[in-house]
């Protein structure tokens, strides 16, 4: 039983840290602000979640467990809120998203403050 808990927490920590590094690579590689936001979304949801679950499996104390649950809930509440507020502020201040061409053909969004997407539509 002891062995099983240690193995599963190690697995959770390993996958979680892989996801965090992937999110870091994504924030470097992706072309514009809105796509980088999705890369940060990975590290905020499943990356943080798996690392905290791995720590929960290692914890022996009830208080430590409860605090880890609290940190997990706070992360899950805070992550979407900040990315939504950030994206809304960026859009309202005229930062145009980079869209690829075949997605532009389906794009029916007629936006007033955003002439970049309309002018590049052939």
């Amino acid at each position: 039983m002891e062995f099983f808990i240690i193995i599963s927490s190690g697995l959770c920590l390993l996958i979680g840290s892989f996801l965090c590094v992937s999110g870091g690579i994504g924030i470097i590689r992706f072309p514009d602000f809105y796509t980088r936001m999705h890369a940060v979304g990975i590290t905020d949801t499943l990356g943080a979640g798996l690392i905290l679950i791995g720590l929960m499996l290692l914890s022996t104390d009830l208080l430590v467990f409860a605090k880890l649950v609290m940190i997990l809930l706070l992360t899950l509440l805070i992550g979407p809120t900040t990315s939504h507020v950030l994206a809304k502020a960026a859009l309202h201040n005229g930062l145009a998203p980079k869209l690829n061409q075949d997605a532009l053909d389906h794009n029916s969004l007629d936006q007033t403050g955003n002439e970049e997407t309309n002018s590049s539509n052939p």
Partner: peptide, 30 residues
């Protein structure tokens, strides 16, 4: 645990690179 700590360090380092290089203000806040 130490491997996970090092991975978090790597992710933080990449975030700092984006924060210094980021072309727009929003990239830096992100």
């Amino acid at each position: 645990l130490i491997a996970a700590t090092l991975a978090i360090f790597v992710a933080m380092f990449l975030a700092v690179i984006r924060g210094i290089a980021g072309p727009t203000l929003y990239d830096r806040i992100l």
